[in-house]
Every structure is written in structure tokens, then in C-alpha cells.
Amino acid sequence: MKLAEAVAALSLEVEDPQILDREVEGGYCSDLLSDVMAKAAGGSIWVTNQVHANVVAVASLIDAAAVIIAGGMQPEEETVKKAQDVGIPLLSTSLSAFDVVGRLYELGLRGTLRDG
């Protein structure tokens, strides 16, 4: 699924509309950065409530398709800047993480798990 489809279906807020043509392979939901780092597969859309800049470092390292910041949290300024620098689509929504994942699942996305 193209990222733009998910953005439209969930009415997600977009920080940088230039980079929504990316293919989404599945999803991962966690607020523990080491857990995401170890287990989320590349191409995942990552749903979290964390808002600080290290989220972008992790997203970039795992080659995430996008980050969705759920629960009405707003990304910190530094997070937005970093995301633009490294080209990670940063999305946000007032939907809870549970609802974001549920809706993405309805759209046909499934959880990813890195091999090994």
C-alpha cells in the first residue's frame, strides 16, 4: 500500500507532503525504542506515542516507511527538523495508538517482524 493511501484513510496530519509515495510493507507499534530497533522490519509504518528526536534516528536505522505519532501528541521541533533532514515521513493524529493500528489493519496492513 502507498503511504498516501493510509494518510488519506486515517486523515493523518503530515509534516512534509513531499514524501508520501513510499510503499508500506506492514506495521509495528511500540514505544520501546530497542524493541522497534530489534524487531520491526524495513518498510514498516511505526506507530508510537514518543515525540522526541531519537524516534527519527530509529526510524531511519530500521528504514521505516513512516512514523505515526498517535494520541494527539505533537512531535518536538527538533524531531520535525530531523525527519525532514533524513527523509522520514512524520505523521500525527489524535487517534489513539490502538485505533491507528486497528484502522491500518482494516486497510490490509499486517504486523511485521524482522527475521532472526
Binding site: L32, L33, D35, A38, Q50
Partner: peptide
Amino acid sequence: EMGFGAGMGLPNIQR
């Protein structure tokens, strides 16, 4: 609270 300190760092490195 920032999502660090889950006690997974060294085990992740080892794996």
C-alpha cells in the same frame, strides 16, 4: 519515559 532503558540494549547487541 523516553522509551529507553528497557533492559534490551546489551541483549540486542549480543544477539
